[in-house]
Amino acid sequence: MHKEIVEFLNKEVAGCGASTTEVEVGDASVVVNAESIKPVCFALRDSSEFQFNVLQVVSGVDYEDRIEVHYILASFTKNLELILKVKLPKAGKDEMVKVESVCDVWKSADFQERETYDMLGVEFIGHPDMRRILCPEDWEGFPLRKDYVVQEVYQGMEVNPAHKINQGDFDFMAKAKLDAQNPKLISGSWAGHVSPELSDALKRKMESLEK
């Protein structure tokens, strides 16, 4: 299906540069140029062959050098599903990347694009109401970027105050790993918050095991 879509798009929208790659596991996707996302969406919606009449998701993924915006389309009449991607080069930390809005194509893009703006810092040009949707309006930074650090103070309130962190919970996993014969079998999160003595002891144990 993806090859036909690429062929169709390259014929219909000049210069959209659609391409796809074969994958071994999971779903394949179609990548297009960021400048032509709106005409591509219009073409896919109005084509009699595919009829992508529903926009399911607009989301994004943050990579080291770029932010990918994903549009997941579905056709309820032809029973199809498509992951459409644009790649936007990243300028720097907390700097917006820009792409054209597809609100005119599907109305569901309204909330979805606002969420992507809120979480990843992608500005959608031409969106009627570009505000944060899940975080408060005066929140700083974009939580789903990989280099995001939570702000320390929000409206005079301390975020994550020390007295509210239960250190015992964080140390629990580290202690279990220290006690276990093979610590690799115990997996858990919160690695960053373990008390320094425990994490040192754990590091020594891992090193001795490797020898």
Binding site: V23, E24, V25, G26, D27, S29, Q56, V57, S59, V61, H70, I72, E81, I83
Partner: peptide
């Protein structure tokens, strides 16, 4: 999980739920 992505949707009581796992 091997490198790749998947979009999988199921019918939930309130509508379609989709997971896009990268």
């Amino acid at each position: 999980v091997p490198e790749g992505e998947i979009y999988l949707r199921t019918e939930c009581p309130r509508g379609e739920l989709g997971y896009h796992l990268v």
